[in-house]
Computed example of a mutant assay.
Amino acid sequence: MSESYEVVLQQVAKGDLQVLLEYIEMGSQTLSGLAVSEEFGEVGSAGINKNLIDAIVAHEGDVCLTEHLHEFNVSGVIRLPLVFLRVIKYKGEVDVELSFNDDPSLDIDRVMLVMQGYADELSKKFHIKEFYGGLEPAADIDTRYFTGNTLGPLG
């Protein structure tokens, strides 16, 4: 059984959410499976766009958006076959998560090191309060590869 890994971009600035998601999507060869936990009419049928992001940000309650990123290119160094993108709006905050399964052809330590660099790059380009990555759920500090630029127990 393969392990699942996760990189979390925590408390993304709502004003940067659309451009951040577009930037992340550009790293993927193809996209599929866009789904939103709340009904926003026809907004979600056009994919991730300004209207959808505005609806998510304006929504009073919690919302989850998911999408599959196929052949996701991490900084030109590593290509992950499938990454699961999650955008979670809760209590007025927005987190963006990238999840993927271990692949026998990849050195997971190297993948996580490159993902740390990728998350750091995103945090500098966009207003992201904190980022971390590790075994899913990456919220568990004991199974993290990194928290920000600091290596964790698995790093």
Rank of each mutant, 00 (worst) to 15 (best):
V19H: 13
L21K: 12
Y23V: 11
Y23G: 10
I24R: 05
E25C: 14
E25Y: 08
M26P: 04
M26T: 13
Q29E: 14
T30Y: 05
L31K: 05
L31E: 10
S32H: 10
S32P: 09
A35E: 13
A35V: 03
V36D: 02
V36C: 07
E38K: 15
E38T: 12
E39R: 15
F40E: 03
E42F: 15
E42L: 15
S45Q: 15
S45G: 13
A46V: 14
I48W: 00
N49E: 08
K50R: 09
N51D: 14
L52Q: 04
I53W: 06
D54S: 11
D54Q: 13
A55Q: 04
A55D: 01
V57R: 06
V57H: 12
V57S: 13
A58S: 10
H59N: 06
G61M: 06
L65M: 02
T66K: 13
H68G: 12
H68K: 14
F72S: 08
G76F: 07
V77C: 09
R79H: 10
L82K: 03
L85D: 01
V87H: 03
K89R: 02
G92E: 08
V94Y: 08
V96S: 05
E97H: 11
S99D: 13
S99H: 11
S99M: 12
F100N: 07
N101W: 09
P104M: 00
P104C: 02
I108G: 05
D109G: 00
L113P: 09
L113A: 13
V114R: 11
V114G: 07
M115Q: 01
Q116R: 11
G117T: 06
G117H: 12
G117Y: 07
Y118M: 02
D120K: 13
L122T: 08
L122F: 03
S123F: 05
K124D: 11
K125H: 05
F126N: 03
H127R: 15
I128G: 01
E130G: 10
F131R: 09
Y132H: 07
Y132P: 02
G133N: 04
G133T: 01
G134D: 12
G134F: 05
L135A: 10
L135R: 12
L135C: 09
E136F: 08
A139H: 00
I141E: 14
I141D: 13
I141G: 00
T143F: 09
Y145G: 01
F146R: 07
F146I: 00
T147F: 14
T147I: 14
G148Y: 02
N149H: 10
N149D: 14
T150Q: 15
T150E: 14
T150P: 06
L151M: 15
G152R: 00
P153V: 10
P153K: 12
L154M: 10
L154R: 15
L154K: 06
L154Q: 04
L154D: 09
